[in-house]
């Protein structure tokens, strides 16, 4: 089967000629359709840079990124925003909800932007809200609901347009453990039942243990990848901790 995402020799260099900093160096990997991939690494390893580059929010200095058959590294500004709208979904650590819109309106925004008919929008929003258990909150405003509910709203918004690929940047970073578990289980369910492809950046080993595969990066380079395979989540969690210990750095203190 054709892989969904192909990353080939991606490099990202910040700064001008006199004072450069390589945030990403020679990164290559593939993600297949229906995978749930985690990206881990110490602070400053280039996790967020990698995510931004893949998410078309930032552009790589060198290398190619193919999503399906489109090379997003070579796309123009206008084409990129259409591409984001049609094929990608985002979940951020700080939710990024628009506080002047209700939960329902926040969720339907990507569909409205894609100019879908109102009836279709209505049906899709209701379905996704049920999946994330926020059906009764649809007419509330973001400031009236809790952090966990906000993040589930953000996740609903990311998934409502059935994107090919979901990018999650530390989605549990600001949540308590109960809310984090709820969210991760919902994402996991979406991944299993609807074959939604998810790529999640995190430095929380617990969150990472929900993934099927984990990429470790350090100093801008891809270091290693581990697969969950048939292991239980708890076994995988232990495995991740071992890897992190070997990796060194400051990741440990976070756990």
């Amino acid at each position: 089967m054709e892989p969904l995402l192909v990353v080939r020799n991606v490099e990202k260099i910040y700064g001008n000629s006199a004072n450069t900093f390589k945030a990403l160096e020679n990164i290559s990997f593939k993600i297949d359709h229906g995978e749930f991939v985690g990206v881990m690494g110490p602070s400053g390893a280039g996790k967020s840079t990698l995510l931004n580059v893949l998410a078309t929010i930032d552009s790589p200095t060198n290398g190619d990124i193919f999503i399906s058959n489109d090379n997003i590294a070579k796309m123009k500004e206008e084409a990129l925003s259409d591409f984001r709208r049609d094929h990608l979904g985002f979940i951020f650590q700080d939710y990024n909800l628009l506080d002047s819109l209700t939960v329902r309106e926040n969720i339907l925004l990507p569909l409205a932007i894609a100019k879908k008919p109102a009836a279709v929008i209505q049906a899709r929003v209701d379905t996704i809200a049920r999946t994330f258990g926020i059906s009764n909150l649809l007419d509330k405003y973001p400031y009236q609901i809790s952090g966990g509910q906000k993040q589930r709203t953000a996740a609903s918004r990311a998934l409502v347009s059935n994107p090919k690929l979901i990018f999650a940047d530390e989605p549990t970073g600001a949540l308590d453990s109960k809310s984090a578990t709820d969210l991760l289980e919902s994402l996991s369910k979406m991944n299993v039942e609807h074959e939604t492809t998810i790529m999640m950046v995190t430095h929380d080993a617990y969150a990472a243990s929900f993934c099927r595969r984990i990429l470790f990066i350090k100093d801008g380079q891809l270091l290693k990848e581990i697969f969950r395979g048939t292991k239980t989540r708890k076994e995988f969690f232990q495995m991740i901790l071992v890897e992190l210990a070997q990796l060194g750095g400051d990741v440990h203190d976070v756990i």
Partner: peptide, 12 residues
Amino acid sequence: KYTVLYKIGVSK
């Protein structure tokens, strides 16, 4: 708000 819009694919 506009950063959010940008990220969810609203064109400039």
